[in-house]
Design a protein around this nucleic acid. Structure first.
Lengths: 200, 200
DNA sequence: ATGCATACTATCAATCCGATATATTAAAGC
DNA sequence: GCTTTAATATATCGGATTGATAGTATGCAT
């Protein structure tokens, strides 16, 4: 009725493994441009932590403002100038802080599963299209990851191998589950099964 | 040099399985309030498609504006009024459209993996904290999903069972991979490797 | 010669996320 | 009895992320 001094929170600068922190981490392998980093996201990092230009460039700008990275403009003939970023000592400290969170998240956002949840509203044909498309995608991914390591951004040896192995394992289990269970979405006797389940 | 009629995109109203579409889907099981839907996200949907109040309420408002849902204000004694939403015929059509995307995404955003990628910059103790924390989380999730189905929002039988089974399978494979491979992050010879790298 | 790929930069609107605010009641703890 | 916590409900706000687009230049293929 008369608000007693509400102030806007000030979230205490949460320790988080965000795009900024990942960029700092990448720079521990040596200087790189935003473009280089995007490629690294595409080839390896992005499989479990995606980021596009719209996140990378603002992240680098913010890091530079806080003095966690420095950059050097390199003029090139023909091509646009490169801004080559390197991590500072302060940046290294901040990276360690970013890694210190004891409960980092692991989130899935799956339009695929959300769609199939409503399989009863879809034609059998379309269900198959969706599933076959996803299987193809997984196949491609497994092919890519099989010839890992192949990217330059890996001082990370141990960690990179662990993460790549994880990706490979989960992708092949993804495939396995779909192979073994896709029938339950398209089986003829679905009507019966459902009725039976309700009946008893 | 003079651009031949570039027009500002008009994104053609992308077909997407977003929060709005999921809310429409939930409403096919009967009318519900935003609060009800949040609970449904927490209990089941959120495991593969998270959404909080900050997404749900704006989504419902937008759906109402477009005439895809209607709502009725229900006055209650003691408690605040409920706004109970129901799907319209137009909304059902839009839902079907939302389900018609042939290539729905399945994305992972894992601070967990991003952190462990840099395991070589972390203490063995902290690596173990992070991993044990995640294992505990998985254990809880498996416990929850074992007593599925238990939520009210499931006309979806087939789809819900498929998705729940998927979650269960992937979670237990997650656990298995960590059990079998966590040693590679904390093995003794890491120190040597790191020292050697620094020394030269 | 025209379009397409590659190499670089960068921005914008739409959306989403996490935290917070407001209000009331009921149960649970001290 | 008093107080804290949980549950029922609504809603908003800043900050971050997404996906698409824009701009500029070279070289390659059709």
């Amino acid at each position: 009725m008369h608000r007693p001094d509400i102030r806007p929170a000030m979230p205490a600068e949460r320790i988080s493994m965000d795009v900024k922190t990942v960029c700092l981490g990448m720079l521990t392998d040596g200087p790189a441009s935003g473009y280089d980093m995007k490629k690294c996201f595409e080839s390896s990092f992005g499989h479990f932590f995606p980021a596009g230009y719209g996140s990378i460039y603002p992240a680098l700008a913010a890091l530079a403002r806080s003095g966690l990275v420095e950059f050097e403009k390199i003029l090139q003939e023909g091509k646009p100038d490169r801004k080559v970023y390197s991590i500072t000592e302060k940046g290294r400290e901040e990276l360690i802080r970013g890694l210190s969170n004891s409960d980092p998240s692991h989130k899935i956002r799956s339009e695929f599963l959300a769609t199939l949840w409503f399989a009863h509203l879809m034609s059998e044909e379309h269900i198959n299209t969706v599933i076959d498309g996803k299987l193809e995608e997984i196949e491609k991914f497994l092919h890519v990851i099989d010839q890992f390591p192949d990217c330059e951004c890996d001082s990370a040896q141990k960690g990179a191998l662990f993460v790549a192995g994880f990706g490979k394992h989960m992708a092949s289990e993804f495939r396995k589950y779909i192979h073994n269970n896709r029938d339950m979405l398209t089986d003829e006797d679905e009507e019966q099964a459902v009725l039976a389940a309700v009946a008893q």
